[in-house]
Design a protein around this nucleic acid. Sequence first.
RNA 1: GCGCUGUUGGUCUAGUGGCUAGGACUCCAGCCUGCCACGCUGGGUGCCCGGGUUCAAAUCCCGGACAGCGCACCA
Length: 496
Amino acid sequence: MVKSLLDEVMTVSLRRGILYPSAEIYGGLAGFYDFGPIGARIRNNLIALWRNRFIERRDIVYEISGNTILPSPVFKASGHLDHFTDPSAECQKGHVSRIDQLIEEKLQIHAEGKSNKELAEIIAQNKIRCPVCGDPLGEVKSFGLMFGTNVGGERRQAFLRPETAQNIFLGFKRVQTATRAKLPFGVAQIGRSYRNEISPRQSIVRVREFSQMEIEYFIDPNQMNECPFFEELSGIKLNLVTQEEQEKAAKKKSTDYSSIQVTVKDAYEKKYVPNQWMACTLGDEVVFFQELGIPENAVRFRHMRPEETPHYSGGNFDLEILFSFGWKEVIGNAYRQDHDLRSHMNGSKKDLSLELEGKKIIPHVIEPSFGIDRMIYAILEHTYRPKNKSRGWSWFQFPVNLAPYHAVILPLLNRPELEEAARRLYQQCKLQGHSILYDDRGRIGRRYARADEIGIPKAVTIDPQTLDDQTATIRDRDTAQQTRHLLSEISILLKP
RNA sequence: GCGCUGUUGGUCUAGUGGCUAGGACUCCAGCCUGCCACGCUGGGUGCCCGGGUUCAAAUCCCGGACAGCGCACCA
């Protein structure tokens, strides 16, 4: 039997503690995964790289950390309560049916976007019954894609946030006054979000609890084409799937899109993207994905078709990654204009505008939203190296900054003096700030294999010669070649 | 959510209505060992869950959970 890449990656992930189903000993829960000791390290490293690139390296981005439970009015204002739902009805036997879908199927009419009342009338007029058992259908209700809960003694209705973004808009005024930030500036957040997906799929690519890294860039609407990063990023090449290309493919009933390659500069100047800020946002992401070890031809931006985006969108561009099961969204880049702040102004009756040169303005928003779990899975697939003739085991070619450990330290033989020297080097490297693993169990070949399997880039072996001349060998994961160095130089050589 | 297929130690798997469910690798202990999971000995862990049929179920039936795929969904 030929195993799929997903099977292979998941097998290693389970065996080596990268990730596994949540509550596995109780049979698991669909759409929920835990990260194990190795996966958690990779995840932490990914977050650190992101934080470094998008927050620390820039002076204008502020990170907050918001709660995952938010009161119901937030989602009334954001539109999630009204739109983030599927109309459903239950028959007496308890079969739940998607009503809009059922109507479209039975009557061949367009039902999407109709209210529950309208749908109920159509059901009654056409005597539509439960497709499973034929019983009459009950009341049409909205099956929310948000997880709901109740808070406190008064059972106040609340929801688990379906995106991290809302906290940023809610705290916008606080953040701005506290930091005295001037436009343009960004507010970032890393955290968990929850969506009660109908059918989770493909390992951690579509799950019900997931993590996001998001930035809302707040920009003076008159300065959408004055991005401070433009010069730095203008030469970056973007693979772009245009709307025209998608229309062309749709005529051939195909979703096999080809992309064009344009620089950030051209994307802006030739108006492939709505503004300079969007062009730069996409360029930034290309550079970031290069750092993660994902090949350039497996990354593309798809200009979302109008029917895929909300009415207030000024243009959305999904960063898609080519997985073994096709292209999937990993980052959503949205030009949300002033919709969110305006909605919360209406909902909360609070003024969220800023004063600029004596005039009140509502900033426009560019929102890149990174899916952490999907990125991790993308990294796993794209850095996975199956076993072959020259190496009898599979391994991950993680970039050093993502690898769970910088190096593993191995005494070649089980002799006290070798172990002592190895332990000393281990402590020394740790003091230098390296994440290091120590392994003295089993034969040396197995230890190399174990280290490769979780993508540790270097293996330092202490052998009898070490005791004579204070040198040790460094084995490179990618080439399996060994070089000998002075112990005193090893820590520096392990630096990423 | 619907449909198809599947679920046997940590991983991969063999298997039949009936003796203590077999193997490989991993793992653990010990010995050996001067470098790529491939030296020796010993050891541990398993039939997804719940019902039913049967003298007897890991095996047959029903239901459920979970997974992969297709459809749908993914403001």
